[in-house]
Nucleic acid binder design. Structure first.
Lengths: 220, 220
DNA sequence: TCATAAAATTTGGGATGCCAAATAAAATAA
DNA sequence: TTATTTTATTTGGCATCCCAAATTTTATGA
């Protein structure tokens, strides 16, 4: 019977990848600890082990950085996570804001073959239910040029591509508003005072705060 | 991020259940150790912990026995295992002899809701790809009255229901012979000398050893 | 019954991951 | 520059599962 070897390591890799590709440039021990919700002592210990395994580098200024090898591994996990999310939403009818924790478990299943078959079964989706692109089997990631809805041109039809914020609160907010990835929107009017906007959505006009609009990423 | 707490325990429960419901009546430490491929010291330690958790009982004669609580848990795991096997075969086109190790991983995913949805998605199958019945959500198991093909009446059409032996060798053997769960068979002739038999299968006559025939379970 | 084989148990470790609390080092503010 | 805060690191431990090598108990056969 088999163990989930380096199951934790996978969480470190994924989290590190997300931090490096998020707002933060330099990831230090504290930042990683907070993101993983683990004790800094724990994280330091693990990071050192991962450095031995050539998955991360500890720079002179204490920055923790993924190596190419580590980044590749991280992308494999993200690939698995996102494909399982598609499965959960498309096949098991979960809502997009319900799938994260389950995908978190499923992403650790070890089998490249399984993932290839799953991908084919799902019809080679290019994005997950949150609109985030799914890396290919080599870890390549297609980037989609998106912009916040708050910056979108007025009176142009745009499509919801992904979200800048995947917090549960925001996902629920969008769910209540009925907004999903792939929906068409059109900015009707922007309020100069607070940046809130009137937006056409499914033939009706809704109002979004600047906060909400800046977290909805769209393609023109 | 979440741990697979008591992941091992689930393997103990499942293995114990299978031993108790197999040929062996009394399961001792050695038998369980062998089945789990673990050191007896390890198994003893774990069994004692599981006894504290009321999952097993250690009888006076050293027999290890599942409690009702333990059996219920074991059946939940078997349920998950078998449903995932159906998924792998029906949806991802795996062969029935390829799915065991993957299902072994998937069965540890923690979510009752996921399993219910998976079951619905698969169309509420009653048996797994090996013909073994899938326990319902309460752990109830429909028993099918099967008999070894070697005991089947002559010149009666019977249906392959399950296998008494799920070893990889046997599964491959059946795969080569083209015999699957649900296939119709008819015993044409039994050789008194060695118990081998001529069997009608898909309009052609094949010969099976007594060894093979006694591991193929059929319903009349 | 007595020797021997088999099974059960004890003992001392190991690896992985985790934590709290103490200390050291570095960065920031006054 | 010194005091304060933040970050990094060390230390000692804990829980879960696992092992090998005794040792003790129990069974079995002669």
């Amino acid at each position: 019977m088999q163990h989930f070897t380096h199951h934790s390591e996978e969480n470190y890799l994924k989290t590190l990848y997300k931090l490096e590709n998020g707002k933060v440039k330099k990831v230090n021990n504290i930042a990683l600890s907070k993101a993983l919700e683990l004790n800094p002592a724990t994280v330091l210990e693990m990071v050192r082990k991962m450095a031995e395994r050539q998955l991360v580098e500890l720079l002179a200024d204490k920055t923790i950085q993924l190596t190419d090898k580590g980044r590749k591994k991280a992308l494999q996990i993200i690939r698995k996570h996102r494909l399982w999310e598609v499965f959960l939403v498309d096949k098991l009818n979960y809502k997009w804001n319900e799938v994260h924790d389950l995908a978190e478990q499923l992403e650790h299943i070890e089998s490249d073959d399984l993932i290839q078959r799953l991908e084919a079964f799902l019809g080679f989706p290019s994005v997950d239910p949150h609109g985030d692109p799914i890396p290919d089997e080599h870890g390549k990631l297609k980037k989609i040029k998106t912009q916040p809805l708050s910056d979108a041109p007025i009176k142009k039809k745009v499509t919801v591509a992904s979200l800048a914020n995947s917090s549960n609160e925001f996902l629920k907010y969008l769910d209540k508003a009925g907004i999903s990835i792939g929906d068409k929107l059109e900015v009707l009017e922007v309020e100069a005072f607070d940046g809130s906007m009137k937006v056409l959505h499914k033939k009706s006009s809704i109002t979004l705060s600047n906060e909400a609009a800046s977290n909805i990423l769209v393609v023109v």
